[in-house]
């Protein structure tokens, strides 16, 4: 169950091999009551690596294969054994994602399709199954790793931006449907130094996975629906959104 401080005992993580997922689960386990975690993702190797790192902080951690590019029914099927192993579900963390190379995507429709599958369609399908589960259970929380990218469109990453926007909007709709019994928390960080952004030019301001983890946990405790990390990202995006498109197009965002 979620405790009186809004923190879970059992969690299911999609994108369980991700750097941000690992940091958030760690924070929930070290400063909260989290003790049983199911990690789901496409590659055993990265799931096992994270599971090994988290083992010291958890009672039990298991890994399950799940590829968000798969057909709808296979996604639902892949969730079932993880839910059964957990025995109860307090928290869902959606941390899967891909950051495609826009220059390649400009000319390759398959990259476009895959980005939408991993960032948009797949998560929406999985969240639909899990939202139903939580709704029937009558309690719990959904944590969705969106991004500030979901709130702007940039020439040099519009595929990522658009596919994250799809998930962000979908999660807002889920929040309207599920709150207040189920907490829905949409996390919108700026650039975070993780495996995903490795090798990309680092902007003037960037975050560590641990900073995002702390902000996420504080945000869900505060019952916040949208968690901007850092909080200043919100007015910054608001300012950009009123600029004329001609100008935004040329900004080095």
């Amino acid at each position: 169950m979620l405790n009186a401080n809004g923190l879970p005992q059992r969690a299911l993580v999609i994108g369980g091999g991700s750097d941000l997922a690992r940091a958030i689960v760690r924070e929930l386990a070290v400063s909260g009551p989290l003790e049983r975690v199911a990690l789901l993702g496409p590659r055993r190797s990265s799931l096992e690596r994270v599971a090994a790192e988290l083992a010291a902080h958890l009672d039990a951690c298991a890994t399950f294969e799940l590829d968000l590019r798969a057909a709808t029914s296979s996604i639902a099927d892949a969730l079932a054994p993880a839910l059964e192993w957990l025995g109860g579900l307090d928290s869902v963390l959606m941390a899967a994602g891909t950051l495609p190379d826009q220059e390649v995507a400009d000319h390759d429709p398959r990259v476009v399709e895959e980005a939408f599958q991993v960032n948009g369609t797949g998560p929406a399908v999985a969240l639909t199954v899990l939202a139903d589960h939580l709704e029937r259970a009558g309690a719990g929380q959904l944590i969705v790793l969106s991004s500030v990218a979901a709130t702007v469109v940039r020439r040099r990453s519009y595929l990522y931006d658009a596919s994250k926007a799809a998930l962000d909007r979908f999660a807002l709709g889920l929040a309207d449907r599920l709150e207040p019994a189920i907490g829905v928390h949409i996390v919108r960080p700026i650039f975070v130094a993780t495996r995903m952004t490795e090798g990309r030019p680092r902007p003037a301001v960037s975050l560590s996975a641990e900073q995002v983890a702390r902000a996420t946990v504080a945000g869900l405790q505060a019952r916040r629906r949208i968690i901007w990390v850092p909080p200043l990202a919100r007015p910054a995006i608001a300012a950009i959104s009123v600029l004329p498109r001609r100008l935004v197009r040329r900004l080095p965002l």
Partner: peptide, 12 residues
């Protein structure tokens, strides 16, 4: 006052 950062760890 509940759900404040640090409270859960301290109470634990």
């Amino acid at each position: 006052p509940a759900r404040r950062p640090g409270l859960e760890a301290l109470l634990a």
